[in-house]
Design a protein around this nucleic acid. Structure first.
Lengths: 217, 217
DNA sequence: TTTAGTTTTTAGTCTTATCTAAAAATATTT
DNA sequence: AAATATTTTTAGATAAGACTAAAAACTAAA
């Protein structure tokens, strides 16, 4: 039995450490889940005892095979629920995160797999993140960060890294959506901002924004 | 903020005390939620402090208006999710309870109401229980227990009181489903058993079974 | 109307998950 | 490589929710 709290730690380690394969520091986890380092140490020990994590004092934590699978299944549920909320319940992409955070902890294999079928086995969630299959695997991501695109080239917005409502509402406000074709016009070295052009407009985005936009060429 | 545990107590009081209007004893609650009387006393105090329950030592507990509404909304969610699981995810009526117990605690007004719409605003769950509306109200139940039906009369199976998988699987095995027309043939005073007849068969049901079958005439 | 029995409450303990503050280990600088 | 800074761990505390055992309050019976 994995508790709700344990699942949240597994998720954090999975995200921070390349699916939990690279050691993650106590502090990094604490910051990610908005708690304190001491709490993290406690929980990591518990995960290690349950054979979900590998832990050596002062040297960070990685996930075991079963820890990685458990994390992937939580993420699978999260992303499937997000698709459900958008496709079936008229949520917009900036409204789904908090609810999916709750729904991801519901325990029922049948539920997840039937949901998957109801949605037509989607491969990506509303933010372009890939949905792991039953075994925790997903197709490798081929999109690149827009900052790596040379001026003059274009691609389709495929993924946004930040799923916070604030960021997504910024994109809404500026008419940027998944699937839009974006052309990189100019890069400004002074502040790392980017001039881009879409079908409807030309605009400047800050590097903070650019960092979160991934396009496929 | 109402916690998950508090919601479960509210539900229990609501069910045991005619929507929480009739005082419910500490022991009755303990039995219902499979805990101990001392735990119940503690929790009742907490509910009273939050103005969700009226509590006088040694005299049981009732729900306040807001307690009743909170309970009804949890029950609304539970039953809507049950409909969802059966109608959209191919669950059978004996598989839904445990999952709905989890889903009923998800907090999102939009989620509940959109779910309601997706399902076409159902009035009853897969066991024939009425689904409260946004204000916690539902149409009065007009079905009667089959033990109150005089031999020779018939009606349609409208509600089953026990939602446990064991009981529902018994009904499955014996080809009894909501909507079936049932005719009462004979009542046996020795053990309160009942001979009934459906479109497909004639059979004897025990009083334990009969107690849980409600039909509309 | 005392006595016996049952129910409810209180008091104190446990577990989970968190925290603060202090100690220990590791990293970084000078 | 010693001194300083940072990170991590330990120790001890707290809150929620549950428990056991004992006390208190009610109820029923003799």
């Amino acid at each position: 039995m994995v508790t709700l709290s344990e699942e949240n730690y597994l998720k954090a380690i999975y995200h921070l450490g390349k699916q939990g394969r690279v050691a993650v520091s106590t502090n990094a986890i604490a910051e990610k889940i908005d708690s304190k380092a001491s709490s993290v140490t406690d929980m990591i020990k518990k995960l290690a005892e349950k054979n979900l994590a590998n832990y050596i004092k002062y040297q960070g934590v990685t996930l075991t095979e079963s820890g990685r699978l458990a994390a992937a299944l939580v993420i699978r549920k999260h992303r499937l629920w997000e698709v459900f909320l958008v496709e079936k319940l008229n949520f917009s992409w900036d409204e789904v995160h908090d609810v999916a955070e709750q729904l991801e902890h519901i325990k029922s294999l049948k539920l997840v797999n039937e949901l998957d079928a109801l949605l037509g086995f989607p491969t990506h969630d509303p933010h372009g993140d890939p949905i792991p299959d039953k075994d925790g695997n997903y197709a490798p991501i081929k999109s690149v960060n827009i900052l790596e695109v040379k001026p003059g080239n274009e691609g389709v917005l495929a993924q946004v890294k930040d799923s916070s409502d604030v960021f997504l509402r910024y994109l809404n406000k500026n008419n940027l959506a998944l699937g839009d074709t974006i052309k990189v016009i100019d890069f400004e070295p002074f502040d790392n901002s980017l001039t881009i052009e879409t079908a409807s407009q030309k605009m400047i985005i800050s590097s903070e924004v650019a960092k979160n936009l991934y396009i496929s060429l």
